[in-house]
Amino acid sequence: MNSFGSFAYCFHQGIKNIRRNKLFSIASVATMTACLFLFGIMYFILINVQYMLLEAETNVGVTVFFDEGIEDEQIANLKQRIEAMEAVRSVVYKSAAQTWEEYKETHLTDELAETFGTDNPLEDSASFSIFFESVEEQTETVAQIAMLPGIRKVNDTEDMVNTLTRLNRILSIGSVIIIGLLLCIATFLISTTVTMGVSIRRKEISIMHLIGATDIFIRAPFLVEGVIIGLLGACIPLSILYALYYKIIELIASKFSSLFSTLNFVNTSEVFQVLAPVSLCIGVGIGFLGSYFTLNKQLRNFRQL
């Protein structure tokens, strides 16, 4: 058996099927595209929220500020006591001067910074950044730290962490439902496309059987049709998503600016490392399986005596 020749033949027939059944093929591709586009956006949000959660857990911790006029000695004392707490991983001291320098660098232009001269408007903003072993133990420990003498204020990240976690869960559930629904529609459309194709070619298929064409030979064009639909339905949204990743994610971030405190997103290649193969698998898988099972049903009538 010359398998390449047969493959080329089946591929050609598959393309022909699609052309002959244009309307349904386009509808299938469009549904698949919509489905995987939505899937991509959900994934963008999920992965970035997750990224922020991770960042919150390891980088942000809490920041505590001291009472006005606190002595250096007291600060050193506090540092020791906090470091001794079990849930605390590390404590980093940042002086008021350092804080001001950083602020100037990230938020002010040089000219603007000049106008302050040697004044430090953030005179009382010396702080500890406290990092915890994990987010779970944070709440209790933060309460303890707030009670310590000399502590003025604790900037807690827990609210944000909680909100993000909740958002994450809602998004996950919501996206699973919506995407599941769309996948059902896409599968249904592919199945209809194949059913139409089989019924158009009913006579042809029986002739093929009679002159000895194998089941695979008869099925292959329809399977190719399904796979091509799936492939297109995956590639179209992927290329749009790829081109517009930062635009999309920034748009979302601006809509939920209270949540997306940073504009520090997971980079494109990292996102598509997962999204591309998953989308392709979903598209091609649904195209192939939808076609395969429909054929099982449709071709049963042709089983010879």
Partner: peptide, 14 residues
């Protein structure tokens, strides 16, 4: 040609 394709005849011979 279809009859030849069905038996998997080499493409260039068809």
């Amino acid at each position: 040609a279809f009859a030849q394709q069905v038996v998997g005849a080499p493409k260039r011979r068809i």
